[in-house]
Amino acid sequence: MIEFKGVTKKYDNVIALNNLNLVIPAGKIFGFLAADRINMLAKGPLMSVCTIF
């Protein structure tokens, strides 16, 4: 299981992720979809946070 609670990622004064709460149950496949350009830009910071831990 992967779980994030209240994750915020900033680049200088730009907030890329703000108070992210996410739970991915064990054995599940999870994908990132973006409806617009703003949400698409948040996928990179989220993946960098996921791979740091």
Rank of each mutant, 00 (worst) to 15 (best):
K9R: 12
S48T: 05
I38W: 04
M40P: 00
A42P: 06
I29R: 15
P45S: 12
A26H: 07
L20K: 00
C50D: 04
D36L: 04
A35L: 15
G27D: 07
I15F: 03
G44E: 13
T51G: 15
N18S: 14
F32T: 04
I52K: 15
F4C: 03
T8P: 04
F30T: 15
L20F: 00
I52T: 14
L17R: 01
T51K: 15
L20G: 01
S48R: 12
N13R: 04
R37G: 02
L17Y: 02
G31T: 13
I52D: 14
F4D: 00
D12A: 09
C50G: 05
I38P: 01
I15W: 02
A16Q: 04
L41N: 14
D36N: 15
T51W: 09
A35C: 12
N13K: 08
K43Q: 14
A34F: 08
K43M: 12
I15H: 10
K28R: 07
A26Q: 05
D12P: 01
K5T: 04
G31S: 05
C50W: 11
I38T: 10
I2C: 02
L22W: 03
F30W: 14
C50T: 13
P45Q: 10
V7N: 00
K5G: 02
D36F: 05
L33T: 07
T51Q: 12
I15D: 06
S48P: 00
N18V: 04
M40V: 08
R37L: 07
F4M: 06
G6I: 00
M47H: 07
I15Y: 07
L17H: 03
F53N: 09
N13S: 13
K9E: 02
L41P: 09
I29T: 14
L17V: 03
A35D: 10
L33R: 04
E3I: 09
E3W: 07
A26L: 03
G27M: 07
P45F: 13
A42L: 08
F32Y: 11
L41T: 11
L41D: 11
T8L: 08
L22G: 02
G31Y: 07
L46H: 03
D36Q: 11
L17T: 01
I38Q: 10
I38L: 08
L17D: 01
D36E: 06
M40N: 13
P25W: 14
G6A: 03
R37S: 07
Y11M: 03
I29G: 12
V7L: 02
I15N: 06
I2Q: 09
I24E: 06
L41C: 09
G44R: 11
Y11G: 03
L17F: 01
P45R: 10
S48Q: 12
N13H: 11
K5Y: 01
N39W: 06
V7A: 00
A35W: 09
I52N: 14
C50R: 11
M40H: 10
I29H: 14
A42R: 14
V23M: 04
T51H: 15
N21K: 05
A42G: 08
P25V: 08
V23A: 06
D12W: 04
L33K: 06
